[in-house]
Nucleic acid binder design. Structure first.
Length: 402
DNA sequence: AGTCCACAGGAAGGGCAGGCGA
DNA sequence: TCGCCTGCCCTTCCTGTGGACT
């Protein structure tokens, strides 16, 4: 066994063509020195946050645009530049970045404020204190240092989904509690309609300034990819058609630069693994399938056990060639499986929520339909390819053994 | 027009775990 | 140790929904 592994490692070192110069450059979290096609947004952001360098509170900013349009990258870039500038002078500015989608980090009011405190280098228990105390601790820290704090709340829509917008309202009013420090919020969202669902008071406080990040077009994506490929790949490895292909595929998905980078990187990894001499269009196609497949498999593996049983039940019904699978059908199979495996069955109300959650992951598609006097229910379909379905069944069969 | 079905989904609250401070 | 706090998962109870059926 270990000999085999050593052989693989040895072959990798000796035979494989060197593909990557810097693999990180082909990931979305890499911070390049320049950000192409976002000058306008960067300049606007910079001018909005600049007053903080003189101790003023910048306006709250609301940034929106689809995934992979450079919102986070630009916000972080501006944050870093601002702190650098501040270190050279007054040292007044502190930029705190939080991704609100991170579970166990910023999915409750308590955790969010606790995370801000941790980012300031102080310790706070993960639970146990009244939320009011956690807020007070945060206020004391920044007030004692007289900072201007800019809080970047990435994916702020998920926060509102979980906690409602009253929290955001309180948060935009933090400054009334502070004596010397000042806080500005930079909210980022992929959801273009997010601002419309907010309470008007929250809306006006959060979006004192608004900034839209439009999708990249295919040519702009090509520029971005060329720029990253120069840093990330050895120059002989890329065939000419690869970058336009990645850009075109990502442009179809609303100009998502993240997707374009993933395609390029994974195509490179495939070539590296197979010790092939060049990345071609064919590898981009394989990469596209692989990314989708891996995403589904990973999300299935991480599902809680009850949700796995619900998914397993749905697959059973699909395999029985059942048309129009409904919530009640899934629940019936689910109950039987619970009996069989000795698992405690949850109520139908709860299963209804689990089906919604599965719908959100994209593994199934659950559409609400009304069947007249036969009631109102969800019509459930699997939304994965046949090979992915087989793989999911293998995972579930393995995980749900009695 | 009224009834009915099979849920969807909101609200309230229970029970437990993890943690803090007195 | 005890009381209190938060988070999380879940149940119970309830109202709402919309189209077929009577």
């Amino acid at each position: 066994m270990s000999r085999n592994i050593q052989t693989i490692f040895q072959e990798f070192i000796t035979k494989s063509t060197p593909v990557f110069k810097n693999r990180d450059a082909l990931t979305s979290h890499f911070a390049p020195e320049t950000i192409p096609h976002r000058n306008e947004q960067i300049n606007t952001l910079a001018s909005i946050v600049a007053p903080s360098l003189k101790g003023g509170r910048p306006s709250n900013i609301f940034i929106y645009g689809l995934t992979g349009t450079g919102k986070t990258l630009c916000a972080k870039y501006i944050g870093e530049e601002l702190e650098k500038m501040s270190h050279q002078g007054t040292n007044l500015v502190k930029v705190l970045y939080i991704n609100c989608k991170m579970k166990k980090v910023a999915d409750t009011e308590y955790r969010l404020v606790a995370e801000l405190i941790r980012l300031l280098g102080e310790d706070i228990p993960a639970t146990g204190l009244p939320t009011e105390t956690v807020y007070q601790t945060f206020f004391n820290i920044i007030d004692s240092r007289e900072w201007v704090v800019i809080v970047i709340l990435d994916e702020v829509d998920t926060l509102v989904e979980k906690m409602g917008d009253s929290f955001l309202y309180n948060f935009t009013r933090i400054n009334q509690e502070l004596k010397k420090a000042k806080v500005a919020i930079m909210g980022i969202t992929n959801d273009l309609h997010f601002i419309d669902i907010l309470d008007p008071r929250v809306k006006s406080s959060l979006s004192e300034e608004e900034l839209l990040f439009p999708p990249y077009n295919a040519l702009e994506l090509q520029d971005i990819l060329k720029h990253r490929a120069e840093i990330g790949f050895h120059n002989y490895i890329l065939s000419e058609e690869v970058i336009p292909k990645c850009a075109a595929l990502a442009a179809q998905e609303h100009g998502d630069a993240r997707r374009a980078l993933d395609l390029l990187r994974v195509a490179g990894e495939i070539v590296e693994r197979n010790s092939e001499p060049k990345i071609t269009e064919k590898h981009v196609d394989i990469a596209q399938d692989k990314i989708d497949y891996d995403r589904i498999v990973e999300s299935v593996k991480s599902l809680p056990k009850q949700t796995k049983v619900v998914l397993w039940s749905t697959i059973q019904l699909v395999d029985q060639k059942r048309e129009d699978i409904q919530t009640g059908d899934v629940y019936g199979i689910y109950e039987n499986k619970c009996k069989e495996t000795g698992l405690y069955p949850l109520t139908q109300r709860r299963i209804s929520d689990l089906i919604s959650e599965l719908d959100m992951t994209g593994i199934i598609n659950a559409k609400i339909v009304s069947l007249g006097r036969y009631g109102r229910t969800r019509e459930i379909k699997l939304s994965v390819s046949q090979p992915a379905k087989e793989k999911i069944r293998d995972i579930l069969d393995h995980d749900l053994v009695i």
